[in-house]
Simulated scan of single mutants.
Amino acid sequence: MPTLNLTTNVPVDAVVASDVLKDATKIVAKTIGKPESYVMVLLNGGQPISFAGSEEPAAYGELISIGGLGSSVNGKLSSALAELLQTKLAVDGSRFYIKFYDVQRSYFGYNGSTF
């Protein structure tokens, strides 16, 4: 049920995309404490983004989860994901925002129903 949606202005080829998806899945699962089989990661590369008036590499993320989030966990996720984006896409951590959503079960749909 944790879903990470990452958008960046960096063009992403299939090989790099696969690496980012795998690594982000592991980061989210381990940090939140949920199985990898529950984690979904979306990566949107090559999107127009301006950050601080510049179109240098930047990224925005949203992480939605039913539980598992909080100030300590969110800080760890922000740090680990920023490091991943720096390593794989050359996005400096100072050019990455992430928003966290802890939602109720009834607000998350799956398999034609809600959790």
Rank of each mutant, 00 (worst) to 15 (best):
M1V: 03
T3H: 14
L6Y: 00
T8V: 00
T8G: 02
T8D: 00
N9H: 03
V10S: 03
V10I: 05
P11E: 08
V12L: 09
V12W: 07
V12M: 07
A14W: 11
V16Y: 09
V16N: 15
A17C: 07
S18N: 02
D19T: 09
D19Y: 07
L21W: 11
D23P: 02
D23T: 13
A24N: 04
A24S: 07
T25L: 04
T25W: 00
K26I: 05
I27Y: 02
I27R: 08
A29I: 07
G33D: 04
G33L: 06
G33Q: 06
K34L: 04
K34E: 09
K34H: 10
Y38Q: 05
M40W: 01
M40G: 03
V41R: 04
L42N: 14
L42P: 06
L43R: 07
L43E: 04
N44Q: 10
N44R: 05
G45A: 08
G45C: 04
G46T: 01
G46A: 11
G46H: 03
G46E: 03
P48E: 13
P48Q: 06
P48R: 06
I49G: 09
I49R: 03
S50D: 14
S50G: 15
F51C: 01
A52H: 11
A52L: 13
A52M: 14
G53M: 15
G53N: 13
G53V: 12
G53Y: 15
G53I: 09
G53D: 11
S54C: 13
S54V: 09
S54M: 14
P57K: 12
P57C: 00
A58H: 09
A58N: 00
A59G: 10
A59I: 03
Y60H: 03
L63D: 01
S65Q: 02
S65I: 04
G67T: 07
G68A: 11
L69D: 09
L69T: 00
L69I: 09
L69K: 00
G70F: 04
G70C: 14
S71Y: 12
S72D: 08
V73I: 14
V73C: 08
V73S: 01
N74H: 01
N74M: 06
N74S: 07
K76V: 09
K76R: 15
L77D: 01
S78M: 14
S79V: 03
S79K: 13
L81N: 01
L81Q: 06
E83L: 13
E83I: 10
L84I: 08
Q86K: 15
Q86A: 06
T87Y: 12
T87L: 10
A90R: 08
V91Y: 03
D92K: 03
D92Y: 10
G93F: 04
G93H: 06
S94W: 13
R95S: 06
D102A: 07
V103M: 06
Q104G: 07
R105V: 11
Y107C: 14
G109Y: 01
N111Q: 14
G112Q: 02
G112H: 05
S113G: 14
S113E: 08
T114W: 06
F115N: 15
F115M: 02
